[in-house]
Amino acid sequence: MINKAFSFCLTVVLLMISVLANAQQQNTESGPVNEFFRSNDKIYVVVGVLVIIFIGIVAFLIRLDRKISRLEKGDK
């Protein structure tokens, strides 16, 4: 059940990435968000990279936590 939901989300995300990559080959748009990420020698891009990595690790830990909980329930 959860695995199906997970693979569905993964498919949607991957499709979105490929569509975005096709639609926007070079980001030259202005706007407050883009300008913020380009300011200060683009250091905020690195902040974004770290936030993405951290969220990934946390999502992994939460999944692992739930899996172990299920194992513990099945043991009793």
């Binding site: 250091i43 905020y44 690195v46 902040v47 770290l50 936030v51 951290f54 946390v58």
Partner: peptide, 14 residues
């Protein structure tokens, strides 16, 4: 822990 670390990552650079 997650909220504090998100704050630390963002504030640590800014």
């Amino acid at each position: 822990a997650i909220l504090l670390l998100l704050y630390v990552i963002i504030a640590g650079f800014t």
